[in-house]
């Protein structure tokens, strides 16, 4: 019987993906922890606003580190010999993609949470007696933290797809592609707004002098809000599954 998805095989593939990289990964996380620890001490010299410090520092670790890791997930496909070896491993494209997806999404979130929590706990333990204040220990249970994690899980799917789609420099090319899409959406939005709110403009794109004093209500404004909601819905609920599916397809089409 043909099986294109075996959970036990996914686990074996995840072990295969993780084990050889363990030293590099731990070194990277240690470095990140060191940076977070150092920043904790530096911040403790100042006003030590824990909410904004942890929000921004953890976000940087999660997003920047996660995007880089995701962009490198399928780096062996850039090398003929390593790519051949990987593609020959018994496992469907779905299994191989799911294995790397789990490691770079949930796996990275767990690694980032643990690393950052430990680093900040140590930082707080050192900073408090030393400086009399500190940003405090990072609490991963806040609503903002989980919203941040949710946004990471959605957006990292694009970088994982970029890793399998682009042969080289996947991170930079994925960022460039994302910027291109964003600029395209912005341009379309600008043109739509220019047309829908023509009475607020003079000339091509110059708004009327008192446009900020105008109260914008009614069906036109509601349609703008509806459009915004539609884009947000697509981003939140459609983009990740879309990238997962096209990523699997792309991996299945990759040649050695």
């Amino acid at each position: 019987m043909t099986t294109v998805f075996s959970p036990s095989r996914v686990v074996v593939l995840m072990r295969h993906d993780l084990q050889p990289q363990m030293k590099s990964l731990l070194s990277g996380l240690l470095a990140a922890a060191g940076i977070a620890f150092g920043l904790m001490l530096l911040t403790s010299l100042g006003t030590a606003d824990s909410a904004s410090f942890h929000a921004s520092t953890f976000s940087n670790l999660l997003f920047i580190g996660g995007y880089v890791v995701s962009s490198m997930a399928f780096s062996e496909l850039q090398d003929e010999k390593r790519g051949l070896h990987y593609l020959m491993l018994p496992g469907s494209a779905v299994e191989k993609y799911v294995a790397r997806l789990l490691l770079t999404s949930v796996g990275w979130v767990v690694a980032a949470l643990v690393t950052y929590s430990v680093a900040t706990a140590l930082g707080a333990a050192v900073a408090q007696p030393l400086f009399g204040r500190s940003p405090g220990v990072f609490l991963p249970t806040t609503r903002d933290t989980w919203e941040t994690i949710g946004f990471y899980l959605i957006t990292q799917s694009a970088f994982l797809f970029g890793s399998v789609y682009f042969r080289k420099a996947a991170f930079i090319k994925t960022v460039a592609a994302a910027v291109t899409v964003a600029l395209s959406i912005a341009l379309v939005g600008l043109l739509a707004g220019r047309i829908a709110f023509a009475d607020l403009f003079v000339g091509v794109l110059q708004t009327r002098a008192n446009v900020d004093q105008l109260v914008i209500t009614g069906p036109r404004f509601e349609s703008v809000v509806d459009a915004f909601d539609a884009v947000r819905t697509v981003l939140l609920y459609v983009s990740a599954p879309f990238f997962w599916v096209v990523g699997v397809i792309r991996l299945g089409e990759t040649e050695a």
Partner: peptide, 22 residues
């Protein structure tokens, strides 16, 4: 089709094979 059941029955030992540090 790259079915896992078939890939389990094939192995390609290429001229230069990358090895992990183990």
């Amino acid at each position: 089709r790259r079915l896992p059941e078939l890939q389990q029955e094939m192995l390609f030992v290429s001229e230069e094979l990358p090895v992990p540090p183990m």
